[in-house]
Design a binder for these strands. Structure first.
Lengths: 270, 270
DNA sequence: CGTAGCCTTGACCGCCCTCAAATTATGTGG
DNA sequence: CCACATAATTTGAGGGCGGTCAAGGCTACG
């Protein structure tokens, strides 16, 4: 089956009709591989379509004048990119492989057809974008306000949770093929300090990370350390129900929650 | 004229047909004021429509367990919010007034109508969202990689540039009604340190900031200090032409936002 | 004229960075 | 399977940027 983690990921956000998931799985789209130090999409170019990660890790990133690299988000199996190119036709960030990669590519013209044939699928793509936006803000929070230990803990929780959602994690661990330098660039820390923090967490029995195998030995503790709340990832109904907070209505208007109403809800995706 | 900075802002992104700008200006939508320590939209609630800032400054923010506040973005006159509420119908961030505020409100049902009648307008809304997304990533870069001076310089450049785009700045300065604590929460610094950095920049003759009047006395220097490139704000054709080749037509843009339809859009404001 | 909020400045400290070297994984050719 | 080369991780010593705590000054406003 192609596009399997992709479909699984979208279904976490919005239930898709069987007809659409079948149609997606039966798409025969270009399938490619990428070896290691390569970009999927280079900064400044027009991606021309949708890239869907099948296996491996990628990252949205940019280089800085001082030689540092900042990672702005990870792309895991089932994630996609290329839809977000700014309207002038050029991405502002590169997307590069952090491990050998398998990915599918859907060119723009085919996407247009799908948008008509598979409205739920398209709504789900929009949902995924919103989740990604909130994830970016969560990262801004993370690097802005948390000390290194919490910051790292938060990232590990996020990666673990996201991988679990596409079936790539066990109960308390997952494969994590990232170098400490990758984590450092995502957390705005130095590799040296990431190492020190990792060692400390290992010594305290919170986690173990050996040969790309991450085990969250004490997930509640790590989660607490990070202040990690998974609700921004919008995975599954349980999280949705749980995320109630202080809900004030500025308007007396009727509820117009479109998201259950129609195939392509009028404004809800936004 | 109502909605004037709003229309001006959108036109920086996509030329709007005269018919649509007229229709927008003639909309008689609810107009409100807000006094100071109040939220426009509270975290966890459903905004139920579009909020458009007419005058004053607002911010998207959240509180942290340790009592700190992180500002994730500023909303200046002409900016809007409420379209971005996640699909489960609750925002994850509050939007609050930093100064007394005037704003317009367009309820969702009216928006749906407009999406049909004013397709270019709707495309422009999508563009503005993309710019906002890139701005958030730029902020992540800013707090993640730059030292305090550059970080502050970058923010001042951004605010100045954005205000200029809606006609609220002079050649080298603008009104900046923010407290140093607001800047601090946006930059992930302490108010004390923001003050020190401001004082240093004043002593070097780079800027002056007195009684809410910001003057960038040496803009090239400040810009250089910050590594500020205005292209992510997508303001005006000059920047667009300078930033890339390959300029797609505005109508080829559309909506993954869920508002389907509209004459224009095939695929992707994306 | 007094109070409250914001800005300013000083002294001190800690988190994280820098520089550097040692140790361990990973991979390649013989 | 071993010898070697390269990349990644680990550990140490020292320093600086920005935080914390605290006090004093300025401005606005009743």
């Amino acid at each position: 089956m192609m596009l399997d983690p992709f479909v699984k990921r979208l279904q976490q956000l919005t239930p898709l009709p069987a007809a659409e998931t079948e149609a997606l799985r039966e798409l025969h789209v270009a399938r490619r591989r990428l070896q290691l130090p390569q970009d999927l999409v280079a900064k400044g170019c027009d991606p021309q379509g949708l890239y869907i990660i099948e296996s491996g890790f990628a990252a949205r990133y940019t280089w800085l004048p001082n030689g540092r690299r900042q990672i702005l988000g990870f792309l895991l199996p089932g994630d996609f990119a290329g839809l977000r190119c700014s309207f002038y036709g050029a991405t502002r960030w590169s997307i590069g492989a952090l491990t050998p990669l398998e990915f599918a590519f859907i060119p723009r013209h085919l996407l247009s057809q799908l948008s008509v044939r598979l409205p739920f699928f398209f709504a789900a793509l929009g949902h995924a974008r919103l989740v990604e936006d909130d994830t970016t803000r969560e990262w801004l929070l993370n690097v802005g306000t948390r000390p290194a230990v919490s910051r790292l803990a938060h990232l590990l929780c996020e990666l673990f949770t996201r991988l679990k959602a596409v079936g790539l994690a066990t109960a308390n661990g997952c494969n994590l093929p990232l170098r400490q330098a990758d984590l450092a660039d995502a957390l705005a820390l130095t590799p040296v300090h990431v190492n020190r923090v990792l060692m400390a967490m290992r010594r305290q029995g919170l986690i173990s990370l050996y040969r790309q195998q991450l085990v969250l030995a004490d997930f509640p503790a790590v989660r607490g350390l990070a202040g990690f709340e998974s609700d921004y990832l919008c995975l599954g109904m349980r999280d949705r129900a749980a995320s109630t907070a202080n809900c004030r209505r500025p308007e007396s208007t009727a509820t117009l929650d479109g998201h259950q109403a129609a195939p392509a809800p009028a404004l809800a995706a936004e």
